[in-house]
């Protein structure tokens, strides 16, 4: 009797406070959005002919706008879809930077050098 009581109380503690599968799916959505936006931003920076620091400032701007867009997509209730703010603002930032530089140089070469 005592053992079963203990078990049930443990089960009560084990009830998850958030749905991990849905959180994973939300992170995937964020990741896709960010990757696509960094590719598009890279192409635009290349066509505009940005060089040096200007391009990185442009990337920062694009990511800020994307973050605002994603927050708007949640309907400004971030905590019902994510753990914390950093997940929606910072996640995929560095990975996106690599795609950005790749497509930036690619578009710049095609438009301005060849």
């Amino acid at each position: 009797m005592g053992a079963s009581e203990k078990k049930s109380s443990e089960a009560a503690f084990d009830v998850p406070t958030l749905n991990a599968e849905n959180l994973q799916s939300n992170m995937k959505v964020i990741y896709y959005s960010r990757t696509f936006m960094s590719i598009i931003g890279g192409i635009i920076a290349g066509i505009l002919g940005f060089t040096g620091l200007t391009g990185f400032i442009f990337y920062f701007l694009i990511m800020t706008v994307t973050s605002v867009g994603l927050i708007a997509k949640t309907g400004f209730t971030v905590y019902s879809y994510f753990d914390s703010w950093s997940q929606i603002i910072l996640d995929g930032f560095l990975g996106g930077l690599l795609s950005f530089v790749l497509f930036w140089t690619f578009a710049y070469d095609i438009v301005h050098i060849f």
């Binding site: 849905n22 959505v29 696509f36 753990d83």
Partner: peptide
């Protein structure tokens, strides 16, 4: 493209 990036990957699910 921003519109596409925000709508195509799917909707957020409540956690």
């Amino acid at each position: 493209c921003m519109w596409a990036a925000l709508t195509v990957p799917g909707t957020f699910l409540s956690i």
